[in-house]
Structures are given as structure tokens and as C-alpha cells.
Deep mutational scan, measured.
Amino acid sequence: TTYKLILNGKTLKGETTTEAVDAETAERVFKEYAKKNGVDGEWTYDDATKTFTSTE
């Protein structure tokens, strides 16, 4: 399943996707990605669109 991440950081904005077996796995991948890029925001998830959003 393809999951999408929308980053709305103070210094980094953008989108990326990952293939994962479930939302929990995708969330771990995306949170590590955000951390590596210095984004520490509030997380939301929309199951209908398989989209995570992190907003600082």
C-alpha cells in the first residue's frame, strides 16, 4: 500500500510517499524521515486517503 506524507515544517515543506504493509509501519518511516529533516510537528492521519500530515 502506498502512503503519503505532507510536511508543513517551518524550514521544510513538501511531500513524499512510501510503500508499507500498514499505516503503523508507514508512520514509523515518516516520523524517522521528518526527524532526519529537522521537522518536529503535530501529526494527523487520514485513512481514506492514506495520508499523514506533520505541521509545525
Rank of each mutant, 00 (worst) to 15 (best):
T1W: 11
T1G: 09
T1A: 10
T2W: 13
T2V: 14
T2D: 05
T2Q: 11
Y3G: 03
Y3A: 02
Y3M: 02
K4H: 13
K4P: 04
K4W: 11
L5K: 01
L5F: 09
L5I: 03
I6C: 07
I6E: 04
I6S: 03
L7S: 02
L7A: 02
L7E: 01
L7Y: 12
N8K: 12
N8W: 13
N8D: 11
G9Y: 11
K10D: 08
K10V: 13
K10I: 14
K10C: 14
T11Q: 11
T11N: 14
T11I: 11
T11F: 14
L12S: 09
L12W: 15
K13A: 09
G14R: 14
G14P: 05
G14A: 15
G14S: 14
G14D: 12
E15N: 07
E15D: 05
E15S: 12
T16D: 03
T16Q: 08
T17E: 10
T17G: 03
T17Q: 10
T17L: 09
T18Q: 06
T18V: 15
T18D: 02
T18C: 15
E19Y: 15
A20V: 04
A20G: 03
V21F: 13
V21C: 13
V21T: 11
V21W: 13
D22Y: 03
D22E: 03
D22C: 05
A23D: 05
A23V: 13
A23W: 15
A23C: 14
A23P: 12
E24F: 10
E24L: 11
E24C: 13
E24K: 13
E24Y: 09
T25D: 09
T25M: 11
T25L: 06
A26C: 00
A26P: 00
A26V: 01
E27R: 09
E27T: 03
R28H: 08
R28I: 10
R28N: 07
R28T: 08
R28D: 04
R28L: 10
V29R: 10
V29Y: 15
V29E: 08
F30A: 02
K31P: 01
K31E: 03
K31A: 05
K31G: 02
E32Y: 05
E32F: 05
E32T: 06
Y33Q: 02
Y33C: 05
Y33P: 00
A34Q: 02
A34K: 01
A34P: 00
A34D: 01
K35L: 13
K35D: 06
K35N: 08
K35F: 11
K36Q: 13
K36A: 14
K36G: 06
K36E: 12
N37K: 13
N37T: 08
G38A: 06
G38T: 02
G38F: 06
G38L: 05
G38I: 02
V39R: 02
V39T: 04
V39H: 10
D40W: 14
D40P: 05
G41A: 06
G41S: 05
G41C: 05
G41Y: 06
E42C: 12
E42V: 14
E42H: 12
E42K: 11
W43T: 01
W43A: 01
W43D: 00
W43Y: 02
T44F: 11
T44Y: 09
T44K: 09
T44R: 09
Y45G: 00
Y45R: 00
Y45I: 00
Y45A: 00
D46E: 06
D46F: 03
D46H: 06
D46Y: 03
A48W: 07
A48V: 11
A48F: 10
T49S: 10
T49G: 04
T49V: 05
K50N: 07
K50Q: 09
K50F: 08
T51C: 04
T51A: 03
T51I: 06
T51F: 01
T51P: 00
F52M: 01
F52W: 06
T53E: 05
T53N: 05
T53L: 06
S54A: 15
S54G: 05
T55P: 02
T55V: 09
T55W: 08
E56P: 06
